[in-house]
Design a protein around this nucleic acid. Structure first.
Length: 568
DNA sequence: GCCGTTTTCGGCCCGACTGTTTTCAGTCG
């Protein structure tokens, strides 16, 4: 095993900082953009980019050329890219943070630093209070006040202000359906990152067309759960719900609804790439229409399909719009037919009151059946099923299965992978089960790769649960080598899970895509601890779609009889 | 610094808003 390589997020962070510093020093904006694009590409790549760079293959990722590949190798060998070390010495540490204040982007931050000699946040505050910033042309009292206000607020990592998709998706879908019922509404859709089903969001965007825009806006701003109306005009309004969610409604003209929905769905990176390619082909794309440069003719459309078609693309599902190769695939007609929620036949990970679940076996089974599942694997935690309790649970399962047939509760377990790599349930018990999930629940940094590889060698382990152990916003993914786990999963016939818990979504999209491309079949499971939580599979399916996965690549899109034959 | 079914050099998305300014640069999404 080689020395630890820098993780993708660490490489991306170095490039982001290099971009910030370069920008402050007045470096070419295109070079800065290249650093940022490379950072995004690295963050969204499922396998270790450092390893690719060592093999000279990082250049195959779009946005990474020979120079940045060289910088990655420097980061591996020296711990830090040389250019970053050099530039850090030239720019006072806190000046970078000027740029993260609203309204202070590199140009202004640089002038405050160089022309006023301000190098710390404290000095910035004093300068603003002393009305010294307005000495710079282009800055006035308003800017000083804005800076003071931002400095007074507790500094916050922007990522922490993002909420979980699991909290926003049901809410935005409910608002969309309420708005659709209004007599003035014609078309209503969620847009933005929530339409792409990104795992977190900042605000929830809704786009609509209407026969009476002000009436629809009035209705929206007076819904009973609205706690605060932040902004309200004739075509646009922003409200905060009583649970703190921020909704934006935008009412647009019907003739260009397709263009606007496309624009406001993003992602930014997708739109930029789409527009760049359009320019090369003689078009100019904006949210209002597609202009043919030669003739000045403007094309607008009521639906998105026509927008993509006009530019020569097949329709691209929102989940794929991240500039991850979807444009080329849509042009060539090779986009995958993505798996959908309706394809699921059952759920292969759930809990009941036999361990830490909130509902009984029967309640869980009935709820699963209600969701349209044909089977539900009951996988209570192994620690709670010792001393004959597992066998007792089987008796109850057998009885229920007689009642509920053809619906079937599968006898399963979520067995713990201990710190030493052993499983905490005996093989002779595991052998009698329909479905065995093995998961790491503690000592995440204690050789997670080795422990999981060992668990996969066990002939009774069908699936590894929540592989990286991350909790979005709370706990980083472990240092587990996902690529090596995927290889071993293929070799041993073990499946990997996309855990649908809103704060897990583990495997995440990029890792699941890597696994799918390697030829692995994945499981989308709820890990539900209550009847309501069984519905989380919608989130897992969304991540599977973001991972470019088809129905064939999802194990539990098959009937149980088929799955049984595919077990090792 | 990256990239190429017109380019290995010469480009690099588009429009709205803001603050400060008589015509625009910088920022934002």
């Amino acid at each position: 095993m080689a020395a630890t390589l820098p993780r993708n997020d660490e490489l991306a962070a170095q490039l982001e900082l290099l971009a910030d510093l370069s920008e402050l020093e007045g470096e070419s904006s295109f070079r800065v953009l290249a650093y940022r694009r490379a950072a995004t590409r690295i963050r969204e790549t499922g396998g270790p980019v450092a390893q690719l760079a060592l093999e000279g293959k990082a250049k195959s990722l779009s946005g990474i050329g020979a120079t940045i590949e060289g910088k990655i190798v420097e980061a591996i060998e020296l711990g830090e890219m040389k250019a970053l070390t050099k530039r850090k010495a030239l720019v006072p540490e806190e000046v970078v943070r000027f740029m993260h204040l609203p309204g202070l982007r590199p140009k202004t931050a640089r002038r405050i630093w160089q022309e006023l000699g301000v190098t710390t946040l404290e000095e910035l505050k004093v300068a603003a209070e002393g009305e010294r910033l307005r000495a710079l042309a282009g800055l006035g009292a308003t800017t000083e006040a804005k800076i003071l206000k931002a400095l007074a607020e507790t500094p916050q990592d922007p990522r922490e202000s993002r909420r979980l998709l699991g909290a926003g998706l049901p809410a935005v879908l409910a608002v969309v359906s309420v708005l659709r019922e209004h007599p003035a509404a014609v078309k209503v859709s969620e847009a933005g990152s929530v339409r792409r089903r990104r795992e977190t969001f900042r605000d929830l965007d809704i786009i609509a067309t209407s026969t009476d825009a002000p009436a629809l806006i009035d209705y929206f701003t007076s819904l009973r759960w609205v706690a605060d109306v932040v902004a309200k005009g004739d075509t646009k309004a922003t409200v905060i719900s009583n649970d703190g969610l921020r909704f934006d409604l935008r009412v647009v003209p019907p003739e260009s609804y397709g263009n606007l929905l496309q624009h406001f769905t993003g992602s930014k990176e997708h739109n930029v790439a789409l527009r760049e390619e359009a320019v090369r082909r003689g078009f100019s794309v904006s949210e209002y229409g597609i202009t043919t440069t030669e003739t000045g003719e403007v094309f607008s459309a009521e639906d998105e399909e026509a927008v993509y078609a006009h530019l020569g693309y097949a329709f691209i599902p929102p989940e794929l719009r991240e500039n991850g190769g979807e444009l080329a695939a849509a042009r060539e007609g090779t986009l995958p037919a993505l798996v959908g929620r309706a394809d699921l036949r059952g759920d292969l990970h759930s809990h009941s009151t036999w361990s830490d679940g909130k509902a009984t076996l029967e309640e869980m089974a009935l709820a699963a059946r209600e969701l349209g599942h044909d089977y539900l694997a009951m996988c209570d935690h192994s620690q709670r099923l010792r001393e004959g309790r597992l066998e007792k649970q089987w008796e109850q399962i057998d009885a229920l299965n007689e009642q509920l047939a053809p619906f079937r509760i599968l006898k399963g377990v979520e067995v713990n992978i201990r710190a030493n790599g052993e499983l905490d349930l005996a093989d002779e018990l595991l052998a009698q089960l329909d479905w065995v999930i093995a998961s790491v629940h503690s000592s995440f940094e204690n050789d997670p790769t080795g422990r999981v590889l060992a668990a996969m060698e066990n002939a009774h382990v069908d699936c590894i649960g929540h592989l990286t152990g991350r909790k979005i916003g709370k706990r980083l993914p472990s240092t587990i080598a996902v690529d090596r786990v995927v290889e071993a999963a293929l070799a041993t016939g073990t499946f990997l899970e996309i855990n649908s818990q809103p704060d897990r979504l583990d495997l995440r999209d990029a890792n699941a895509r890597l696994a799918g491309e390697a030829g692995l079949t994945l499981v989308v499971s709820s890990d539900g601890h209550s009847t309501g939580a069984l519905g989380y599979v919608e989130l897992g399916i969304a991540q599977a779609r973001r991972a470019w996965l088809t129905k064939k690549q999802i194990l539990n899109a098959r009937p149980w009889a088929e799955i049984e034959k595919l077990r090792k």
